[in-house]
Amino acid sequence: MLEQQLIQLIFLLLLILGGLWLSIGYSLLRRRYRVKRKKQLKEQVIQYVSINYTKSLPISKFVVPHWLQGYIKKSRDLRDVANIIINIKDFFITDRDTWSFLFATDVTVAKELKADIKSNNWYKKSRAIWISYELDIDQNLDLIAKLNSHKHILVRREAQIALVRFLGWKSLRILPYVKFPISLWQQIRIVEKLHQYYPKFDDTFFKKAIQAESPSSRELCLRIIRRFHVQNYNWYAIQELFSEHKYVANMALELLDELSFDEDDLKLLGQHYQAYKLRANNVVLDQKLTPLLQANN
């Protein structure tokens, strides 16, 4: 009786072990198949783009080839195709308005992304938003706009960058209402997206942006002033130079060398500096401002 139970136990263990090995083998084969498939897909996409949409050829019509439609109708494959296009678009496509030809005119892609944006999974949400703004798919902009204050940092970060990509300077209106800090990486991305797609400084919406009280939003405004070489907001840079928030003050200090001050600016700077010295001491600031103010006395 005991021997029979032992044999049954051994048989069960062997069965479980065999099942595990089969599962591992299947996973490895599937992974190998996916890697091979992704490699083939990348080669096909690059070849198709290089033949039909290189910088030396005029674009006559945006066409999604049949072999590619089969890929982008599946969520996982859509992600793979999107990653490939995003990685190669700057090398092949004629200009920034045409490299999204594989996606922007395809309703299927927008529907797939819409489903992910509505998902409760934060990773799916953020990835779908990222694909949307990198490939100029703006059909789901209304949904994305509602996520700019999402509780998850990646979702709201991508949503805010997407708003900048699609709305440009108009998107800066939300800065006074941003509830969470804007990370350094995100600030840099926002400034670069503005400069890349909306290179003309828009004073109308920037006036609303500088009303923000959040330290990270103010730091972002200083970065915008620096990147776009704006000279009519010297007073703002001077004001933030004496901010109680270290990162804001440091950003203003970096900006100082790039600004041209007139007599009124220097007078304002001197007033702020004298008031600041009564409550604090900053050796770096003293070394920077003292020669500047003395030279203009």
Rank of each mutant, 00 (worst) to 15 (best):
L41D: 04
K118R: 11
I86M: 10
I24S: 07
D97N: 13
I46F: 05
R37N: 11
R37G: 04
V49K: 00
S119V: 00
S27I: 09
Y123G: 03
T54D: 15
F101T: 04
N120E: 09
T98Q: 14
Q69E: 14
E43V: 09
K38D: 14
Y53L: 02
K38W: 09
I84Y: 00
K55C: 06
V64S: 04
R79H: 10
I24D: 08
V45M: 03
K39V: 10
V107N: 13
N87L: 09
K38P: 02
L28S: 05
Y71L: 07
T94A: 15
A110V: 06
T98S: 15
S126P: 03
K42G: 08
F62P: 05
N83T: 07
K39I: 13
I46T: 11
D116R: 14
I129G: 02
D106R: 06
W67M: 03
W67F: 06
D116K: 12
K36Y: 12
F62S: 10
K55W: 05
R32A: 07
I129Q: 02
I129R: 04
P65L: 00
S56V: 07
D77T: 03
I72Q: 09
N121H: 08
V49F: 00
K61R: 11
T94I: 15
Y71T: 04
Q47V: 08
L113T: 00
R96Y: 12
T98N: 15
Y123M: 13
Q47M: 07
P58Y: 04
T94D: 14
S50K: 12
Q44M: 10
R30T: 13
V35E: 06
S56K: 12
N120D: 10
F103Y: 03
I72K: 06
V81G: 01
T108E: 09
K124H: 04
K36C: 05
V64W: 02
P58S: 02
R79V: 14
D80M: 04
L102P: 03
L68Q: 01
T94R: 15
K118G: 07
